[in-house]
Design a protein around this nucleic acid. Structure first.
Length: 589
RNA sequence: GCAACCGUAGUCUAACGGAUAGAACACAGGACUCCGACUCCUGCAAUGUGGGUUCGAUUCCCGCCGGUUGCACCA
């Protein structure tokens, strides 16, 4: 089903061509003066130049040509040359009825050319608890994944675990200090390794920071960790067995945490999965003449003539021959291309890594790891700051664990819900969890991803203003009315949406027509905040309408059924929007 | 030092080069015999600064001021 703006644009364009002007001037946009009109066309002003004619004369002609339109109830030419348009209420009602016939997509068409898009979440490290720094990539990535799927694309999310490098050596070293008798440390050991991991997740979470601290103070400890890392990476069996234990324990815990966020990944690949691809990749880079030795390290030049700053070469191997982050990311691209050959890969990572990814992308393109038909996109997000405007910390100044943050918000939400309503304990807990998630996610996603933002629990959990809970409240309120209507023994099977009589009703209807456009731009700009903006506008329009209209008390059955149809559509659209944002609404709250 | 990003009401945030810069919170008023008033309405209040391009600039270009971040063997 065509978007309303396209339909109106077609109508206005027709008028332009009939009057002898170029079709490019017929573009219609949403009005930025809602007090004057619903839609506007500024083409007459642009055309004035080409046709050497006063803009208002052109606008007058077009307005006259549009006067008989079934689609528009009014088209008037104003001052310098604006064309102000209003949609015909009957046409609008028909359009909405059409949307309602499609309760999954509301007429939003899927992409003509579906693409295969992979998402890289820049991965959490295994053996380290998730902290607030991981929140944004998870939330934003999940939403972009959902928006993409809604638009008909194939989206594959890869968590891209940090499971390689010195941190693993540190853990092994510390474990060896504590339990030297374990068979994993016996180089001569030939038997099977135990299936059960020799540690629990909470031990693991404690081991890493301990080891990390020790290595900073004790040079020989660090030496041992580096040695262990080297041996692990060069095939020492006992260490590899330990690695898989660490992975298992860690991933289980990570999955549980991500589930609480309603975030999931299709692939649980890690840096270690890329390692087998490194030797051939490096070999090929050398053979093809891209890689050379500079200051002892193997690098690939990635400068371009248009650069305004110095872009350092992309380092492939350190001077000691070891691989590093770049190597792993490039090798990851090798297997992604081999196995999936995606049209696009989007990296959802901290924006501070922009320069780094510029290097990697250029290197991947230059060395033909990634061909011209695959787009590499860097989607950098800003820092989540506390109320003081500085990076979010616990009250003690430490790094806030994600779990703690969530439970703090759950508590806050529970308090609010339990205060106001007579719900039993378990329902209140369950509801609090749902609403709390909306608070966190909406609070994050309503900002442009690339900007830093202030994480303010009080504001995000408020039921007033531009917040998740406000959106949910609106949905719950509609549900309540619909339930009451049904309880009266009525239904809307034979009913349809009627032309609006009141301003607030028409405003709501117009808002509803914007659904497809909102989804499309949110996808093309990878901007979930556009969905939030649409959602908030729609919720506001609904509340305004609701406030002025008595629905259950309406005596005219057909009119009442029409209202109910409109509410049903609004509720479905609202719920589709929060679904792509990655949260849901409770039955009551 | 070089470079990138950012700078919008007291706070937080939006705006393909278009009309009177749009919301939210806070603040000051107002609206419930009514479907959930956790709602709705009214008001106050902003583009860091100086130039340029344009019929028209928050938006594009240049200078300055302020903030954040990044500049090869960490990830």
């Amino acid at each position: 089903m065509k978007k309303i703006l396209d339909l109106i644009t077609a109508e206005v364009t027709k008028a332009f061509t009939l009057c002898g002007y170029h079709e490019k001037y017929g573009k219609v946009t949403l009005s930025n003066r809602p007090d004057l009109c619903e839609y506007q066309c500024n083409g007459a002003m642009a055309a004035a130049k080409e046709y050497k004619k006063a803009p208002f004369l052109i606008a007058d002609e077009i307005a006259a040509k549009l006067s008989g339109s079934r689609m528009l109830s009014s088209a008037e030419s104003v001052k310098p040359g604006f064309l102000n348009l209003k949609l015909d209420p009957a046409y609008l009602a028909d359009y909405l009825q059409e949307m309602k016939r499609d309760p999954e997509r509301f007429g939003c068409e899927k992409a003509e050319n579906p693409r295969l898009i992979m998402l890289d979440y820049g991965g959490p490290n295994v053996a380290k608890p998730l902290h607030v720094g991981h929140l944004r990539s998870a939330i934003i990535g999940e939403s972009i994944k959902r928006i993409g799927r809604f638009m008909g694309h194939t989206m594959i999310g890869d968590v891209h675990l940090g499971d390689w490098g010195l941190q693993m050596g540190l853990i092994i070293t510390e474990l060896k200090e504590r339990k030297p008798e374990l068979c994993y440390f016996d180089a001569e050991y030939e038997g099977e390794y135990p299936k059960e991991a020799p540690f629990t997740i909470s031990e693991l979470e404690e081991i890493y920071p301990t080891a990390s601290a020790k290595s900073k103070e004790d040079a020989s400890y660090k030496e041992a960790a580096m040695q262990a890392t080297y041996e692990l990476q060069h095939g020492r069996k006992g260490y590899q067995a330990l690695l898989s234990h660490i992975l298992n324990v860690s991933v289980t815990d990570l999955k549980r945490n991500y589930e609480n966020l309603n975030v999931s990944f299709d692939l649980w690949k890690g840096e270690s999965d890329a390692q087998p691809y490194i030797p051939d990749m490096v070999q090929k880079m050398k053979e093809d003449g891209y890689a050379y030795i500079s200051e002892g390290a193997l690098v690939v030049d990635v400068r371009e003539e248009t650069d305004t700053k110095e872009i350092p070469p992309c380092m492939i191997l350190k001077s000691d021959g070891a691989s590093l982050y770049n190597t792993t990311d490039l090798a990851t691209l090798v297997w992604r291309m081999q196995e999936y050959h995606p049209n696009e890969i989007i990296y959802i990572v901290d924006k501070r890594q922009e320069l780094y990814f510029t290097q990697v992308f250029r290197c991947a393109k230059k060395t033909k790891i990634v061909g011209d038909d695959t787009k590499l996109k860097f989607l950098g997000f800003g820092t989540m700051n506390g109320k003081d405007g500085k990076p979010f910390k616990t009250r003690e100044g430490g790094i806030m664990r994600l779990e703690h943050l969530l439970s703090e918000i759950n508590e806050e939400m529970y308090r609010k819900i339990a205060d106001n309503h007579t719900m039993n304990e378990s329902e209140a807990r369950e509801t609090a969890k749902i609403v709390a998630l909306s608070a966190v996610k909406y609070g994050d996603l309503s900002n442009q991803a690339s900007k830093d933002y202030i994480f303010d629990i009080d504001r995000f959990t408020s039921f007033e203003g531009n917040t998740g809970p406000y959106i949910l409240y609106t949905i719950v309120r509609i549900k309540s009315i619909l339930a009451k209507y049904q309880a009266l023994g009525k239904d809307t099977k034979a009913a349809k949406i009627l032309p609006a009589r009141a301003e607030s009703e028409k405003a709501l209807m117009l808002e509803l027509t914007g659904f497809s456009a909102a989804m499309e731009t949110a996808f093309s700009e990878a901007a979930p905040h556009k969905v939030c903006a649409y959602l908030y506008g729609l919720a506001n329009a609904l509340n305004h309408f609701y406030h002025e209209t008595k629905i259950l008390a309406e005596e005219d059955e057909a009119v009442q059924a029409g209202y109910i149809c409109l509410l049903e559509l609004t509720k479905d659209v609202l719920e589709s929007c929060i679904d792509v944002l990655g949260f849901s609404a409770p039955e009551r709250m």
